[in-house]
Nucleic acid binder design. Structure first.
Lengths: 202, 202
DNA sequence: AGATAAACACACCGGTCGGTATACTTACAG
DNA sequence: CTGTAAGTATACCGACCGGTGTGTTTATCT
């Protein structure tokens, strides 16, 4: 259904000028913490210690900067997850490693999933960032699918779908739902679904 | 742990002048479909066929209007769910009815959960709407808890938490994840967790 | 030496943002 | 008859929005 190389491939970021990198870093902090529409280009320029002119020279428009923000975030997130996965044995342990990586990721990103948040603002439009978001979310499900196939489960597609639901649910419940036990609850439930003697999972 | 009257109580909306109602209706459409920060007060006034003056006379500020939008939405959503629940027998069937009600709700609200979306824009601030959102999400978990208690499950708190994860996960995966099978997948998984002969659930 | 790319400072543009002020009309209650 | 609440119309406010134009400095590459 899918080759490992597809699931684990992480695109590399194109080289960037120093100012462009500072701009993107500043934009990341501001977009994530305050929301995309709530942040003006002027405040990004100020936070990056540069000028609006440079922003528009490097990224073309605010929309271009938004797309770059989402792309970089996607790459960094995938790198973390893949790093954690490679340390584990295929199947059961790898699947749980995804939940652990998410938990770790969210310790430093308290405002929840940047892609879900971005989709909340861009979802109704034809903004080019939307496809980056959808692609990112599809990648997670495909990753679970790859893991479940490698783990030899009977119905990897179904199981991966279930894990995806738990995964997204834990992020949202922990943030918008303000329930701190969401992560451990999701991990425990995933563990149950993955248990080799559980007739529901395989 | 909780009395039925708490879980099923739906606050009633305060009476509203005709213009205020039109304003709130217009704001609902615009906030939901375009996002809160992306919508200006002028466009709300125009869509409602009234003036900014009236908006500020009735709601005090844009923030006041945002809170009213979230409150009304919360009441309408709860009313639908409770209506569907009351038709079912306690426990198993009621829990699934929540998933069905959500599915039905999302047929008319294609942009996903208005509360999750609003939280994406307001979550980092001290906006008064945040507590309305958190309260709404807590209500869902409490509702599941009430249902699981009534169903006589061994660990209703744990089971309700699991159902909450699936519930939120299905909404997000269906919208931001663009995976149309999320709803049925969540329902099937919930059914498995609720199965009386499943040792994991009780 | 000359060309090129990158970054800088800074002024400027029309439009929209949330919010206010003034004045006039309508309807209903005492 | 009179006061009060509700609504409409319209003009206005300073601040900020995304985006552009002009000109200068600096470093690197040929």
């Amino acid at each position: 259904m899918m080759s490992p190389v597809v699931a684990l491939h992480v695109p590399v970021e194109a080289p960037m000028t120093p100012a462009a990198d500072r701009i993107l870093t500043a934009a990341t902090t501001l977009f994530y913490n305050r929301g995309i529409h709530a942040v003006g280009v002027d405040s990004i320029a100020e936070a990056a210690g540069t000028t609006k002119k440079t922003i528009y020279d490097r990224f073309g428009s605010k929309n271009g900067l938004i797309v770059a923000y989402l792309r970089r975030r996607s790459m960094q997130w995938r790198s973390l997850v893949i790093g954690r996965i490679e340390e584990q044995s295929p199947g059961h342990d790898q699947a749980l490693a995804v939940f652990d990586a998410t938990d770790e990721w969210m310790d430093s990103w308290v405002r929840g999933c940047g892609f879900i948040n971005a989709y909340a603002e861009l979802g109704g439009t034809e903004h080019p960032g939307v496809e980056v978001i959808v692609e990112e979310k599809s990648w997670v499900r495909e990753l679970f699918e790859y893991i479940c196939i490698a783990g030899g489960y009977d119905d990897p597609h179904f199981l991966a779908g279930q894990l995806t639901l738990l995964h997204e649910g834990s992020i949202v419940t922990r943030t918008a739902g303000a329930q701190s036990d969401a992560s451990s609850l999701a991990r425990r439930t995933a563990e149950a679904l993955l248990a080799p003697d559980d007739r529901m999972a395989r």
